[in-house]
């Protein structure tokens, strides 16, 4: 199975359900062959955007270019984008083979071409031996693979995956996401993956777009987004973040509570600083740190211990590595917080 790598460009896309605007001016460009994730909480518009690319839902305003072709006004069956549905949407009245053959048949391919195509697609997902089963006789993971094979069999220009792992159990989810990535690399197929799970997006995607309220908050590689979030939403959505308010003067950030945090790259007009819990360490000697506080709450997480520390700048979450034999701080203990602040991003 060969695929010509195709890019996607979305320009100023607006979409409303009645009076409610769900997508408010989306612009993005996805490179040919890229594994791209739409990440966001429920209601952020990520699924709506994916469905708009496939041609489902209300007609949007704006342009959707797949390759050089604007597909915004085409019905779904003329777009040649492959979509794998969250529920898999396997037709229960057809066998696995019939399900996979459906697309090639609708494209009026000659019968002698359909058979090999179906088998190749099933082979690719490792389910050729189950071709004559009915979907109800398959496990969730197998159904997922059939749905994938059914989509690949029509050789779409791009592959759209709508929360493909959400119906699988935790262990299978990890395995499936690796297989998905391997398959995508093998086919070189431009792929968009919708998820609300940052770990899924981080582990699979080349780049991702974080959406909230129908607006793209930031686009970049997983690491870029984690290390240099564009705003508080992205900072909070990707991992845990303590966001302290204050002001930046030259090389220091002064919090509202009066603590001084040195920064590596000062940003004029910066109003907030993002402190990751693992970049803060606690010391029993309260006078040493720039920040002081008392331990409010302690959670044992196995490899880590998470403290909630009450400070003049509000409650701060601190993660410390746990090794057996060490004595954790008790609730109520007065501690000093020392901050590895050089990597801490500043937000306006």
């Amino acid at each position: 199975m060969k695929h010509i790598k195709t890019g996607i460009r979305i320009e100023n896309l607006h979409l409303s359900f009645g009076q409610t605007e769900v997508l408010a001016g989306i612009d993005m460009e996805i490179q040919p062959g890229e594994f791209f994730a739409f990440l966001g909480p429920s209601g952020s518009g990520k699924s709506t955007l994916l469905r708009a690319i496939a041609g489902f839902g209300p007609t949007p305003r704006g342009r959707i270019l797949i390759g050089d072709r604007d597909v915004a006004d085409l019905p779904p069956w003329k777009r040649n984008v492959g979509m794998v549905f969250q529920s898999y949407a396997l037709w229960p009245h057809m066998s696995v083979r019939q399900n996979v053959a459906f697309g090639p048949e609708e494209r009026r391919l000659p019968r002698r071409e359909i058979g090999p195509k179906v088998e190749a697609a099933l082979e690719l997902v490792g389910l050729l031996h189950l071709a004559d089963r009915m979907p109800s006789q398959l496990s969730g993971g197998q159904q997922q693979r059939v749905a994938l094979a059914r989509t690949i069999a029509v050789e779409p220009q791009v592959l759209l995956l709508d929360e493909p792992l959400s119906n699988l159990d935790a262990a299978l989810r990890v395995q499936m996401r690796r297989e998905l990535l391997a398959l995508q690399r093998k086919l070189g197929l431009t792929t968009i993956f919708v998820t609300h799970d940052q770990e899924e997006a981080n582990t699979t995607s080349d780049r991702m777009a974080v959406l909230d309220g129908g607006v793209i908050q930031q686009i970049g590689t997983p690491q870029e987004l984690y290390d240099t979030p564009a705003n508080a939403f992205v900072a909070g959505f990707l991992g845990t973040a303590n966001i302290l308010e204050g002001q930046c003067d030259g090389i220091r950030f002064v919090t509202r509570g009066g603590h001084v945090i040195p920064v590596a790259k000062p940003v004029a007009n910066a109003r907030r600083i993002v402190l990751r819990p693992q970049n803060i360490t606690l010391q029993g000697n309260a006078t040493e740190g720039a920040l002081r506080g008392s331990v409010r709450h302690r959670e044992f997480l196995g490899s880590q211990i998470r403290y909630l520390v009450e400070t003049a700048d509000g409650q701060i979450i601190v993660d410390t590595l746990h090794s057996s034999g060490t004595q954790p701080f008790d609730e109520g203990a007065v501690v000093g917080l020392s901050i590895d602040s050089l990597s801490a991003p500043l937000l306006s």
Partner: peptide, 24 residues
């Protein structure tokens, strides 16, 4: 999604009704 999957794979109209919707 049963219907959308069919449309996504290039099926529509009466043909889709006959092959997917009515059998279901």
């Amino acid at each position: 999604s049963m219907e959308e999957a069919a449309q996504n794979l290039g099926s529509s109209g009466v043909r889709m009704f006959r092959r997917v919707v009515f059998p279901l």
